[in-house]
Amino acid sequence: MINRLRLDKYSALYLWAFFMVLFTILRPDTFLTTTSFKLVTQENVINGVLALAFLIPLATGTYDLSIGLNMSACLVVINWIAKNTDLPQGVGLLLGLGVCLLAGTISGFVVVKLKVDSFIATLGMSQILTAFVLFVSPQTISGELSDAYKNVGAAQFFGLQRFVWYLLILAIIVWYVLEHTPLGRQMFATGGNPEAARLTGIRTDRLRWGSLIASALVAGFAGVVYSWKVGTYGQSIGPGYLFPAVAAVFFGASQLKGRPNVWGAMIALYALAWGVKGLNLIYTTQQWIRPLFEGVSLLAAVALASRNQIIKIRKRKTPIGQAVLEDLGVSPKEAAGA
């Protein structure tokens, strides 16, 4: 019974359903309303974009921890251009993305050519971008962006702000590339076994490099969304966005397919978002509730998925047969030296 529910693959959906029922009962007047639906959907678009940014390189087995700061970098450029120049704001947007393009290219170079672990390379890039952001503007910049500019993303469309739909389009594109093109398949092969992928003729270095550029650009786009949505730059914006994105991707990776995937990440993101929303209605002043909830949910979801993995492995070891012979007796390496 329990197994048929596929708790491992659909835990986020069950969790989501559980929150909806629970908080609807507890807060029938405020929880399940059109307003909160809009609010939760719109509030999490930036997290969603960043989750996609983190997901792309992760498919190739590469971490990009600089997504939060790429977002900041793009945001500060947009605001600085609007404040200090007469250039059209669209130019600022492009320049902002240009900075991210450069950052992603450098990260890729460091990872692929200098053979630095991506975890460290992008952590270093984060600090360099922090320096860039502080250099451009240590002070908050607000009120510089025109309503016309903001409306490009923030205007209403079918009942929601446009950027919600942009996220949907972006998610569909990333999903399509990852799941329905040879490029995506090759990226997953690179993440799954880089050596085997390379021997199959896949240009694994290019894929990793390219995926870091893509993730920097998508993270820059999160900065663009922020500029439409809020419009203000402040130096503390950015780093705090890393966790929700990473959590959504890892939680999501345990969902649906058993590897990082777009819809798993999106479902995980919104399941957690609704949970947070419900908790905020009940515990209105306790700020610590949110991070506690997010942390516990991530650990529980990933642990649940790993538990199933462990059971599979244990089951496989028991029957005496070829698999055991291979595991113990004549694994390739031993036989070569026998």
């Binding site: 092969a189 085997a196 021997l199």
Partner: peptide, 25 residues
């Protein structure tokens, strides 16, 4: 290649994905 687990198969992938990986065109 020899040493199938290290250089041959992509562990997290299915039989289909492993087989067709050599040429998806």
């Amino acid at each position: 290649p020899a040493d199938r687990k290290v250089r041959g198969t992509v562990g997290p992938m299915s039989v289909r994905e492993n087989l067709t990986l050599s040429d998806l065109t």
